[in-house]
Lab assay of single mutants.
Amino acid sequence: ESFERTINIAKGNSSLGMTVSANKDGLGMIVRSIIHGGAISRDGRIAIGDCILSINEESTISVTNAQARAMLRRHSLIGPDIKITYVP
Rank of each mutant, 00 (worst) to 15 (best):
I55A: 00
D50A: 01
I61Y: 09
I84S: 00
I55D: 05
V63A: 10
Q67W: 05
D43H: 02
S33I: 03
I46Y: 04
A39K: 02
L16D: 01
G79T: 11
R69E: 14
S21E: 14
H36D: 15
R45I: 00
R73V: 11
A70I: 10
K83D: 05
V20G: 04
E57C: 08
G17H: 02
L27M: 15
G28K: 00
I46E: 00
D50M: 00
V31T: 01
S33M: 04
M71Q: 04
E1A: 06
R74P: 05
G79Y: 10
G37Q: 07
I7D: 00
I55Y: 01
V31G: 01
S14G: 13
I34K: 04
I7M: 02
A22Y: 05
D25L: 08
V87C: 10
I30Q: 09
A70V: 08
T60Q: 03
S2G: 11
N13P: 09
K24V: 11
G12M: 07
R32F: 03
S59M: 05
E1Q: 10
I34G: 01
L72Q: 04
S41G: 11
I55L: 12
C51G: 04
S54F: 09
I82C: 15
G38P: 01
M18G: 00
Y86I: 02
E1D: 11
M71V: 13
I34T: 02
V87G: 01
V31N: 03
R73I: 11
R5D: 03
K83E: 07
I52M: 01
F3V: 11
R74E: 10
Q67I: 05
S15F: 14
R45V: 02
V63G: 05
G38V: 02
S62W: 09
A39Y: 04
R32G: 07
I84T: 03
H75E: 08
R32W: 00
V63Q: 09
S2N: 15
M71G: 02
G28E: 00
I48Q: 10
R32N: 12
I40H: 04
E4G: 10
R32M: 10
S76W: 15
E1T: 08
M18H: 01
S15Y: 12
I61P: 04
I7F: 04
E58F: 05
A68H: 00
F3G: 10
A10K: 15
L53R: 10
G12L: 07
K24Y: 08
I61W: 08
L53V: 12
I48E: 12
I46S: 03
R73S: 12
D50K: 00
E1K: 10
R5H: 09
S62R: 13
T60N: 04
T6I: 07
N65W: 04
G17L: 00
A10P: 13
A70D: 14
Y86F: 11
I40L: 04
S33Q: 12
E4N: 13
I40K: 03
V20S: 01
I61V: 14
N56K: 00
N13S: 12
K24M: 10
M29S: 01
S21H: 10
S33E: 13
T19A: 08
R45S: 04
K24Q: 12
R74H: 09
S76R: 07
G26H: 07
N56T: 03
I46V: 07
T60E: 01
G79W: 05
I78W: 09
G38A: 06
G26V: 04
V20Y: 04
A39M: 05
L77C: 14
G44Q: 05
I9L: 06
F3D: 09
I55P: 03
L77V: 12
I55V: 12
L53E: 03
I84P: 03
S15E: 15
L53F: 05
R69K: 14
S14D: 13
E58K: 06
T85L: 05
T64H: 02
K24L: 09
S14A: 13
H36P: 15
I55K: 03
D25S: 13
K24T: 12
S14F: 12
A66G: 12
K24I: 08
I46L: 14
V63P: 05
G26I: 03
D81Y: 11
G44H: 04
N13D: 13
A47V: 07
A70Y: 08
T19C: 09
S54C: 09
L72H: 04
M18P: 04
H36F: 09
E57N: 15
G17R: 01
I34D: 02
I35W: 08
H75R: 06
I55H: 00
S2E: 08
A66M: 08
T85P: 00
R45M: 00
I9P: 03
H36A: 15
R74Q: 07
E1N: 15
L27D: 15
K11M: 14
P88T: 08
T6R: 06
H36E: 13
V31I: 04
V87L: 12
